[in-house]
């Protein structure tokens, strides 16, 4: 019964995107599932709205707070690297996943996060993954030619930099701790947090020359 001919898959396009009809069908289908579950007393509309609010809440800002604290407080950074979940909890941020592994960029080391099998992502910190993160191309290539993938994102690593790719395949979720941009000495934690982009915490961006200009600060649509 599912009419999916409108779900676009343009041959080489590595991401299947619904058109308006596909989105309407998805909406009607999930409403139908909800109605059946509600009739059986398994789930209520109120619970669903609360859960939607809960999953809408995380985003760049949570990860950015963690990063800014780590830049500002070396002892905190050490604890965060040892146990990301506890580190987040210190800031009142609850990690829903089993464990959070914070991986630190440094001169000569660049970390990149991918999930080749599906779409594992630190959702309780960064929210939903971006569309490209769940694309076939990113999942397939990040573990085979990470430097080329990074180039496509505009990241040109210095010669000799070691790339460390993390395939998020099981119970851990990964957050990249980017390098603190030069020229940010003396900035408050709040101001530092504004510099941290979502992409830098996935590892497909580096913070640097644009640090002085807040216009580059990524804002998620959600």
């Amino acid at each position: 019964m599912a009419h999916t001919e409108h779900a676009h898959d343009h041959g080489h396009e590595p991401l299947v995107i619904e058109d308006d009809a596909g989105n309407l069908e998805g909406l009607h289908l999930i409403e139908a599932v909800q109605a059946v579950l509600a009739r059986k007393g398994l789930i209520s509309a109120g619970e669903i709205m609360l859960e939607i609010q809960a999953i809408e809440a995380p985003g760049r800002h949570l990860g950015a707070r963690i990063v800014a604290r780590a830049w500002s407080d070396p002892a905190y950074k050490q604890r965060l690297l040892e146990n990301g979940k506890n580190g987040a909890a210190e800031l009142g941020i609850k990690v829903g996943e089993a464990q959070l592994e914070v991986v630190e960029n440094a001169p000569g080391v660049h970390n990149l996060v991918v999930c080749t099998l599906c779409s594992c992502y630190p959702r309780s910190i960064l929210g939903q993954p971006p569309s490209w993160y769940i694309s076939k191309a990113y999942r397939a290539r990040a573990v085979r030619e990470p430097a080329r993938v990074l180039e496509e994102f505009g990241v040109d690593l210095p010669e000799g930099t070691v790339i460390r790719v993390h395939d998020s395949n099981a119970d851990l979720r990964y957050l990249v701790l980017p390098e603190r941009p030069k020229g940010t000495e003396g900035m408050s934690e709040e101001a530092l947090a504004e510099l941290v982009t979502r992409d830098s915490m996935i590892g497909v961006a580096r913070l640097g020359t644009e640090a002085a200009s807040s216009s580059q600060t990524a804002r998620e649509p959600n």
Binding site: R144, I163, V165, A170
Partner: peptide
């Protein structure tokens, strides 16, 4: 968590021989 060298995963891997893949 297990670390592999990318050059050990992909015979034609040409970038930095120290590049790594970490996975559970």
């Amino acid at each position: 968590r297990v670390r592999f060298l990318l050059k050990d995963l992909w015979p034609d891997y040409a970038r930095n021989p120290g590049d790594e893949l970490c996975i559970e």
